[in-house]
Design a protein around this nucleic acid. Structure first.
Lengths: 216, 216
DNA sequence: GCCGGTGATATTGTCTCCAAACTGCCGGGA
DNA sequence: TCCCGGCAGTTTGGAGACAATATCACCGGC
C-alpha cells in the first residue's frame, strides 16, 4: 500500500533511497507536501531532510522550489576529477594505514566478486562495498566523508559503467591490482592504480553516453 | 543591543559566524531554544541551520543534543592530509583553467598582502580570500564545494598559524611561488607548491600547539 | 552510607496553523 | 488579437503548541 507506518528510517534516508532507486529522477520537482503524504509524516522532517540533501548538492533550487539535481557533461567531468584525486588519496593512505585484517577483507571481496562478473547490478553493489572498504581503510574520517559526498552525487548518473560490455572483467582486474599494491604497502602504486581505475571508468561512461545521446 | 531585528542574514550564517568568532567554542552545547531567542527567530530555522551544520561536521551529537565539534590531534592531522591534496589539486587545475584575469587578480592580491605582513588577523582574512580565489580559478564546482567544507572545519581550530613569528613573510613568499607557477601554466609545480605551502602551515600549527599544550 | 527507583524538568522531535511569495489563468482594454 | 493587470491557487518559510524522551536530582530502602 503505502509506507506510512511501516518504515523505521528517517525522512532523510527515505528520500535519499527514493532518489537512488529512481523514483525521483534528475529534474523532478520535490514538493514538500507530496513527500510528507507519501512517507506519512508531516512537512517538518521532510523540510529538514530536503535541506540536508540540498547542502549535499543532490538537490538544487529552481526559483523557490527544489528539484533533483542533474549532472550535465561538464559537471560529470568535474566530479570525476575530484573523485579520481580523492580515491587515489584513499588508496595511498590505505596502503599505509590498513590493518592486515582490512587487507584480508579486501582480498576476499575481490575474490568473491569474480562470480558476479556478468551480473551488472550485483556487481555494482559489490563495487560500492569494495570502494567503501578502501575508503575506510584509509583511516581518515574526513576523506571518508568527502568520498561519501562524491558517491552520493554519482547516484545522479543513471547508469553504472559496469553495465558496459566486458567492463566487469576489466574492473575486476583493476581491483586486483589495487589490492595487490595496498598489500605490498606501495602507496604510490596503490594511488596510481586507483586513479587509473577511475579514469577507465570515466572513459567507459563517456562512451556509453555518446551512444545514448539524444534519447531521453 | 541584540541582533533580533537588525540582521538580514539567515540562521545558518548567523550560527556559523558565531562559531567562527568564538561565541561558541568546541565542546559547547547548542540549545535550540537559546539560539532561537538570541537571534530572534523561532526554533524552525534554527533547527534547519543546526542540521546543515551537523552534516558539515561542524557540530556533532552528544547523546541527543548537539555540541560544537572539536578537533583532537588526530582529526587535525587527518584534516590537513585531505586539505593538502585538495588544495594541491585546485592549484593544478587553476594552472590549467584560470583565465588571465583571474591570474591577474591573484597577483594583485599577493602584492597587496605584503603590506599586511605584520597584522596576523588582517593577513588571515586576506589569506582566506587568496586561497578561495585559487579554488574558484580551478573552475571545478565540486572541488570548490569540498574545499569550503574543509575550510569550515578548520574554523574549529582556535588560532591561525599566521600568528606565528615570521610566518607571515614565509607564507607570502610561498604564495608568490604558487602564483608564479599558475601563471607559467605549470600544473605540476603549482600543485606541488601549494601542497608544500599547506605542509609548512601544518608544521607551524603543530609547533604552536606543542607550545600551548595543557593550557585551556 | 550507598544503590536503585521514581518523578520533575529540560530539551528535542513532530505537527499544524498562518503569512508571504510565486504561478498561472482569466478578463478587459487597446 | 495581443498585451497588461489583477486574482486565485499552490507552495514555501516561519512560529508556536504539543508529545515524547532523556537527564538529573532526590528520596527511600537495603
Amino acid at each position: 500500500m503505502n509506507q506510512s507506518r511501516s518504515n523505521l528510517k528517517d525522512a532523510y534516508s527515505l528520500i535519499l533511497e527514493a532518489i537512488d532507486v529512481g523514483v525521483y529522477k534528475p529534474g523532478d520537482r520535490l514538493v514538500e507536501s507530496d513527500l510528507a503524504e507519501r512517507f506519512g509524516v508531516s512537512r517538518t522532517p521532510i523540510r529538514e531532510a530536503l535541506q540536508r540533501l540540498e547542502t549535499q548538492s543532490l538537490l538544487e533550487r529552481d526559483g523557490r522550489s527544489l528539484i533533483v539535481a542533474s549532472l550535465d557533461h561538464n559537471q560529470m567531468a568535474e566530479l570525476y576529477v575530484v573523485r579520481r584525486e580523492l580515491e587515489g588519496l584513499a588508496a595511498s593512505l590505505a596502503a599505509r594505514h590498513a590493518t592486515v585484517e582490512e587487507i584480508r577483507v579486501l582480498k576476499d571481496m575481490v575474490a568473491e566478486d569474480d562470480a558476479l562478473v556478468d551480473k551488472p547490478s550485483d556487481l555494482a553493489k559489490a563495487n560500492r562495498r569494495f570502494h567503501e572498504q578502501i575508503h575506510l581503510a584509509s583511516h581518515n574520517r574526513y576523506l571518508v566523508q568527502q568520498l561519501n559526498l562524491v558517491h552520493r552525487s554519482m547516484a545522479l548518473m543513471a547508469t553504472t559503467s559496469l553495465a558496459a560490455e566486458g567492463r566487469g572483467e576489466i574492473a575486476q582486474a583493476e581491483h586486483k591490482r589495487i589490492v595487490a599494491a595496498i598489500e605490498a604497502r606501495d602507496e604510490e602504486a596503490a594511488g596510481q592504480a586507483l586513479k587509473d581505475h577511475i579514469s577507465v571508468a570515466f572513459m567507459t561512461r563517456l562512451k556509453q553516453d555518446a551512444g545514448t545521446r539524444g534519447k531521453s
